[in-house]
Amino acid sequence: MKRILVVGGGLIGIRHLAAVAAHPECHLVGLVDPDMSVAPQLNRFADMTQVTEQVDGVIIATPTGLHARHGVYAAERGWHMLIEKPVASDLAGAQDLSRAVEKAGVGSLVGHHRRYHRSAQQLKHLIAKGDIGTPVCANLIWAMRKPDEYFKGNWRTAGGSPVMINLVHDIDFLRFVVDDIVATTALRGTSLRGTARIESGAVSLAFANGATGTICFADTTPSPWGFEAATGENPNIGTTGQDMMWIIGTNGGVSFPSMTLWSGKDWSAPAQKTSLDVNANKKPPLDAQLDHFIEVMNGAQPLIDVTDATRTLATALAIEEQLSPQLKGVANG
């Protein structure tokens, strides 16, 4: 039995609490959250320093700006950790955390949970074994219209860029199935809600394996295209089942999540379509992630640790920075 502490009682923290409580190989030590009215039936702590019980692993689901500080403290206590994504709010914090984890010799896992979709792992394997030949291009769309209430009376009115809230997931997904991203160029779209907030844009990508790619994104457009809508993973977002990513190579291409494989030789004949059997999740990705966290605590190699997640963060921050000068220009104009 692994003794697990959850830090942060927000929407995702509550889901982690339920997963730990239901897991036959876990014992829930309790919840750390300054709001003591959250889950009062549990063993409650207002701060991590109050925890005197034995802890094997901690799940950190606090606001992103607190991830590095909480993770460093957990490492100093000798606790293995699962940290929600993004791993930190800036590179300095992520690098501090990486050093603390290495110094303490504890295991780290970062909650980029899309890697646990069996269809995502199927896609990664298909590309790696050369079913589409050498990857050449990857194109992804994330587009939906967030409700106006999402932005009213909170920090998102000015700072709710979909890059760090949403695109960070797609960036990590592309890194997982294609390769590391080594360069980006971003163009900002027009703001339609009357604020200076980033709402839409297009990003060009260069991968370490020589492939290139694009991401088109918007949070102002009702559309069927986006990971959540395509896979049905988020109960708050309507499911469409429409493909939202297309990867092409020297022998053909594949679309996701339908896992439709296309193959051919040259333009003299149409590409041939093969519909593959899509690997279905045996467990919700969050539960599969908890299974893997237990393995990491037992010494297994993490699917994505703090160092790897820092590369995802660096790409997202670079895109945000490339959009910011354009953003200031629009705001001043």
Rank of each mutant, 00 (worst) to 15 (best):
W79G: 01
A75I: 06
L174G: 08
R44L: 09
E199N: 08
D277K: 08
N154S: 04
Q242S: 13
T62P: 02
A208I: 00
V32M: 04
H112G: 00
S89V: 10
E25P: 02
R311W: 00
H23L: 09
R175N: 07
L140M: 10
T260S: 12
A288E: 08
L42N: 05
A211K: 01
Q301A: 12
I304G: 03
I294K: 04
P222F: 14
Y116V: 00
A128R: 08
H23G: 07
I198T: 10
G253H: 01
K265C: 06
A229W: 01
H67F: 10
N43G: 12
N281R: 15
I247S: 02
G93V: 07
L167I: 13
Q326I: 15
E233Q: 11
V110F: 05
L167S: 04
F227C: 06
S324W: 04
V168F: 04
K2V: 01
H117I: 00
H67I: 10
Y150I: 09
P222H: 14
A280P: 07
L205E: 05
H292G: 13
G8C: 08
R118P: 00
M48D: 02
I4K: 01
D287I: 12
L327Q: 13
V330L: 13
D219W: 04
P224T: 08
A230P: 05
D33N: 13
H70F: 14
S268F: 04
G299Y: 13
G8E: 03
I14H: 06
T221K: 00
Y116S: 01
N298G: 14
V87I: 15
G133P: 05
G111Y: 02
G159Y: 13
S255G: 11
D180T: 02
I247P: 01
A94Y: 07
M244F: 14
A331C: 09
I83G: 03
W79P: 01
I319V: 15
L126M: 15
P162C: 00
A331R: 09
A316E: 03
D170C: 06
A269G: 07
P285M: 12
W267D: 05
G130N: 14
K273S: 13
T220Y: 12
I181P: 02
A229C: 13
T312N: 04
T240N: 07
T310Q: 09
N298C: 11
A211T: 03
K273M: 15
T185P: 00
A269T: 11
Q122P: 10
I198Q: 03
S258P: 06
A202D: 00
K146V: 10
G93M: 08
A300Q: 10
N251A: 10
T49F: 10
K328C: 12
T185I: 13
T231R: 07
L31H: 04
I165M: 14
G299A: 15
Q95S: 11
T274K: 09
P325K: 05
T310P: 00
I165C: 14
L28V: 11
L261M: 14
E199T: 08
S161D: 05
A196V: 10
A143Q: 14
T64D: 12
K103H: 12
S204L: 09
W225L: 15
Y150H: 15
G252K: 02
G333F: 14
T312V: 13
A46C: 09
